[in-house]
Design a protein around this nucleic acid. Structure first.
Lengths: 157, 157
DNA sequence: TTGTGTAGTTGCATTATAAAACCAGATGCC
DNA sequence: GGCATCTGGTTTTATAATGCAACTACACAA
């Protein structure tokens, strides 16, 4: 039947997956971070059916991850650019990339490595730290009930 | 038709998504990191259909993310525990969590925060650094062709 | 041995995804 | 202007994935 939605779930992981947890959305965002903006660019790069790209782009715009803008080349077409919320997905993509780099069964098939643009050297591994700077594994963390009214939202841009 | 597979793709993000990019896998792994091990525990916690849980668990075992073990309570049943590869997914979950914490439209619905077990204080945000310690945004990074034969695999445990 | 819990499997309805055909408006070219 | 082509979709039709419910097999407990 209907695919279950995690929209009302109180787990933030489930809530994220509800928005970007499908097959194509993260790859569209990856492409957007690489500078792609036009419908045709995404379609050619990803090789997905156009009807599905249409639906995905519309959903990402609805979610405030992409926004439409007039084409930068002066033509009458539009393009899709990332919002602040969309650019915030970058760490998720880095984490996915690094997991593959570390554990993929056939790492020799991976075509690229991520480097810092300045020096051209590989980036560090993402790591989780406590506020006082200790490196944390999953076992060193716990979940606490959220303290009420602690969060301040910024406007998407 | 058939859902497209990214198995042969050379992008490591696509390769990761091919393995854990579906609706339930990451939530199963989240639960496993929280200590759940038994079929029934997953099923009750996630509320997914049992046939689907069966398929997912089997796929995760095939991928080397979970492994089966005799039940720790002495009964004749088995349980599912994370491998090293499976525990390596932790940063991806943290990234998903933090994205929701930062950008969710209704953050007041998020029930928990992640703290370090020692001090009980919220963990730091994941951040990407260059090898010489500079904080990197997406725009500060680039992709380079992979240098040949650089990778050493460790055994999954 | 009767009942209950665990861990699935099977069957069927519904939905999402995919490929391909189609189409309207914008653009480029002569 | 006239015509072919490009862009950005929509429509149609098919197949695969998902979900629910009912069923089964085995373990365990009384």
């Amino acid at each position: 039947m209907k695919r279950t939605s995690f929209e009302g779930d109180q787990c933030p992981i489930a809530r994220s997956l509800d928005v970007i947890g499908d097959w194509w959305s993260l790859l569209i965002i990856r492409d957007a971070l690489l500078g792609r903006r036009r419908f045709g660019e995404f379609q050619k790069s990803l090789g997905l059916a156009k009807n599905i790209l249409t639906v995905r782009l519309r959903a990402l715009v609805d979610q405030g991850i992409l926004k439409t803008a007039p084409a930068s080349d002066g033509s009458a077409y539009q393009e899709y650019v990332l919002t602040l919320k969309g650019r915030g997905i970058f760490p998720i993509l880095v984490a996915l990339r690094q997991w593959s780099e570390e554990f993929d069964a056939r790492p020799e098939e991976i075509g690229t490595i991520m480097v810092d643009r300045d020096k051209g050297k590989p980036v560090r591994k993402l790591a989780l730290y406590s506020q006082d700077g200790r490196l944390l594994t999953a076992a060193d963390t716990a979940l606490k009930p959220r303290p009420p009214g602690k969060h301040v939202r910024s406007m998407a841009g």
